[in-house]
Nucleic acid binder design. Structure first.
Lengths: 335, 335
DNA sequence: AAGAATAAAGTTACCGATAACGTAACATCG
DNA sequence: CGATGTTACGTTATCGGTAACTTTATTCTT
């Protein structure tokens, strides 16, 4: 074994005068070896600086991959960012690796990503999307691996679902806003109100208002990605329409903060003239002059629980098909 | 070929009565086949819905992997998020896949991530970190693959470097702030001023002030991760010390916005009483009542250029060892 | 038209780990 | 004490591509 080529299982085995199967068993923590053999193997592995070759392991008989695919709407959102951190960390601790992708709320991009992922023969897949294309569903079926759908709770999960109801988040916020006396509420949305989880919150919000015998007085749905700008200009446009809402519900906190910035600039008092509420529990929302009314999402917990559930399913341990991660309405003082 | 087991190259070849090598050549776009053969292969591939097995391809002779490892400080930052989006997208377009990790500014976490990555035999590695551990450097050498160091420009890159000088960013901002008449400047930092790119900006800033014959009147370096909170409370603590700075330079825009929120709440006028400047060119910074003075970073361009350079190096095409991505000081109106 | 050059394939030998199976040595038990 | 586990290994086949090499068919040259 020269210094330039990295040692393989076989090198370790040859050095010790055992079969590579024995070394493999020790390293995987399988059974069928004595303590003496284990110690000798571990020592030799440490001495040579042996690095396992996951490629070879995953390539052989199926069911030995430790690769997990994870796809979220976008990587630029702190919410999905902290979710991914938690997923990454939890999976790493359990001995799995992550391949991350984003779909920008486009089912076809998700499908393209999944097709690429499939060629790496992952052990399982985690998806954060409201809707999947037919091709995606077919691919998932063909792959025959555990699937965790996270973020929104679907009524009928493909396999596992971990998340919460965006519909209920919207419903709850509507009740909260109406309970504080708001009657003429507007909504500022994004993404052209495509079938995303944000759209579900919107629908829940409508339902909540309907229950209270009210309806939106005005809505402004931008085509853009959600963000501070979108919230700022969406609010400006909405107010130019002279519908005079007494409160605005935003697609998310970034947009609400953008809206807050516009309202402040326009001399509108929050919440006296117009109340606002966001969604997501962004850190920035807590440092506004008034604490933003929002729904806090425990992304770290969600990521951890989802990763653990997916691996349990993978290992054949019992898991609930659906796990609800409770969210929390933060009253704040902007409504 | 029954419906349940996915077709392999060999299945395609057998169906067509050619060797699997011919099919492989067609699919990889290598040379050595006729147009007729190409068409027949492509047709059969489409008909059977053949999915290549990247695992097998990467497992064979080295140099055939299409996996690229990318490690950034954290996934929760929109800046790194958009960088990763660009890298992901560019690499995907070039036929490569990404394995993403984060190191939280800890060299040991980067090393642990790299060790895991190495077991997947990637074709190349992209790192965003100021410092690497000895183990990381040894691993990179042993792996023998192209390495792109991004974000900050190192003086002596391991292989390739794509980015900009954080030191110069700090230097330039110091000059800008002094040119607008500020003499008593404070600094609010994070991460305990560890050797990160933020620390480099700090050093450049000090240099810039020194050139103008000035020095920081006060600094407040938090141990935490940078963020809105950190900026808010860091500013509060700083002002409680009664050093009365006439301007504050922040670790980044999030912290500057946090600081702005505190100043506003405390009745301090920006920039009349105290001017502020951040770094990063966050979207949110542009919707403050006054546009934040900051340094804009073209993350998307950086990600695209870095990915392209890395692949050029991988393919043996000529590339500059060092590529500078110009940043832009946004004057704003907060100083 | 013979020989050289080129194009279009086919053949072979892996890459490194693991599942499945085989087996020798030893313990256990009725 | 023979029959039957149990433990601790060893052996073999194999996953699906690809580089390197070889062979065959075709075209070109003089």
């Amino acid at each position: 074994m020269d210094k330039h080529s990295k040692p393989s299982l076989e090198d370790i085995a040859r050095n010790l005068g055992v079969s590579k199967m024995t070394v493999s068993r020790v390293l995987r923590g399988a059974s069928g070896f004595s303590d003496t053999t284990r110690d000798r193997v571990m020592q030799e592995v440490a001495r040579t600086g042996y690095l396992p070759n996951r490629l070879a392991a995953a390539f052989g008989k199926s069911g030995t991959s430790t690769l997990i695919g994870v796809c979220v709407p976008r990587l630029t959102s702190p919410l999905f960012g902290s979710l991914l951190e938690a997923v990454n960390q939890t999976l790493a601790r359990l001995g799995y690796q992550t391949m991350i992708g984003s779909h920008n709320q486009l089912p076809d991009e998700e499908e393209a990503w999944l097709r690429t992922l499939a060629s790496w023969k992952p052990a399982a897949v985690m998806l954060a999307a409201r809707t999947h294309s037919k091709g995606t569903l077919r691919l998932l079926r063909d792959m025959g691996v555990p699937v965790a759908e996270i973020w929104d709770l679907t009524t009928k999960p493909i396999d596992l679902a971990i998340g919460f109801s965006h519909f209920d988040n919207g419903l709850e916020m509507a009740r909260c806003m109406m309970a504080t006396g708001h009657k003429k509420i507007g909504y500022v949305g994004a993404l052209g109100n495509r079938n995303t989880s944000g759209h579900l919150r919107y629908q829940g919000f409508l339902r909540g208002m309907g229950e209270g015998g009210a309806a939106l007085v005005v809505e402004e749905i931008l085509q853009d990605q959600p963000g501070f700008y979108a919230g700022y200009y969406g609010t400006e446009t909405m107010l130019a329409r002279n519908k005079e809402p007494d409160a605005i519900y935003y697609h998310d906190d970034e947009m609400a903060i953008g809206g807050y910035a516009y309202l402040t600039k326009a001399g509108v008092r929050v919440p006296d003239d117009i109340g606002i509420a966001g969604w997501g529990g962004m850190e920035a929302a807590s440092i506004l002059p008034r604490r933003l009314t929002t729904t806090a999402i425990p992304t770290t917990r969600l990521g951890k629980v989802a990763a653990e559930a997916l691996i349990s399913r993978l290992r054949g341990d019992p898991v609930d098909d659906v796990t609800i991660i409770p969210t929390r309405l933060v009253p704040g003082s902007t409504i």
